[in-house]
Design a protein around this nucleic acid. Sequence first.
DNA 1: TCACTTATTGATAATGGTTATCATTATCAA
DNA 2: TTGATAATGATAACCATTATCAATAAGTGA
Lengths: 167, 167
Amino acid sequence: MRGFHRMNAGWWHGRFRGCGYRITLPRQMIIELLNRTTAHLSAEDVYLEVHKMHSDIGLTTVYRTLELLVQMGIVLKFDFGDGRARYELAETSKGRKHHHHMVCTNCGRIIDYADFIDEEIELLSRTEKGLSKKFNFEITNHLIQFYGLCDQCQKTIKRLSRPSVSQ
Amino acid sequence: MRGFHRMNAGWWHGRFRGCGYRITLPRQMIIELLNRTTAHLSAEDVYLEVHKMHSDIGLTTVYRTLELLVQMGIVLKFDFGDGRARYELAETSKGRKHHHHMVCTNCGRIIDYADFIDEEIELLSRTEKGLSKKFNFEITNHLIQFYGLCDQCQKTIKRLSRPSVSQ
DNA sequence: TCACTTATTGATAATGGTTATCATTATCAA
DNA sequence: TTGATAATGATAACCATTATCAATAAGTGA
Ligand SMILES: [Mn+2]
Ligand SMILES: [Mn+2]
Ligand SMILES: [Zn+2]
Ligand SMILES: [Zn+2]
């Protein structure tokens, strides 16, 4: 309920009304939260955070709203393999760039990267063209993720796999 | 329990024993099943299929065995967004090639493709190199998937979204 | 071949993220 | 302000996957 709200209240209102949806407090709060973070929040994360200011917003509504936002193309939904869906504002909003993710298989950390994106996008569009021709498959979107060990976990793992110094 | 068994029984036995694992009937049956299909089976799929010949093999064992095979690198585990994990023999076995997947978001159909793989792999390895340098992230594997509408579903959707002729 | 150690199994219950229900409430066009 | 109805939230249900644990079976060595 800061600059974002004042700035875009009308825009969001129109966006929702245009689809026949109503703009409600829970929806505003959730959009605002997603807008001011760069993290990849789970439904529960969103619930807990929103709950701080508005303890009357239920978890069910959070799930429903997130699903609605995904369906409207406003939010992206990801599965990083930790058993819960994670959400992030799509790149349509200003200041967001299309990016891909690296996932640490040890600690679950998720790293955004936009480097090499141009080359990736080019290859992807070339591949998409070839695939849709060969299989007559109409591609709407893609998913690219890298899995491995983050900087910190590499050190931890190495330390653990080496004979301990003390004792 | 056909050619595959005779052909590779010894090899599999060694592979398992080398890790301290025992080779059991359920494990053999599951490997054989995965070896003779090109589908992307869920744990329940595997259970039902194996159950036809050996009704005493339990679902729990199927889950455990699949997880073990994944951990040994023999089987690949995927999430195609339908709420259940799906498994497929890794490309280590003869006759299997590394491939990526297209997922139909309407009917759930999954299409393997190995075309363009070489270019993809090259870009991936280049990207991996850049990323691991920039973020000091040690990449162990990647995931590429395309989502969209398969040939058949395109027709269905078009038919539905057009005014019906009869009536 | 036999016995012994222990990895493996499978029936069952539990877990946990996500959905379905449904009575109540809030939005917004008129 | 009002009325039609979209949205909410407490609750229960769902369902894929895991944890438990006593019973079984695989492999080893005699
Ligand atoms: Mn991100
Ligand atoms: Mn495949
Ligand atoms: Zn890590
Ligand atoms: Zn389809």
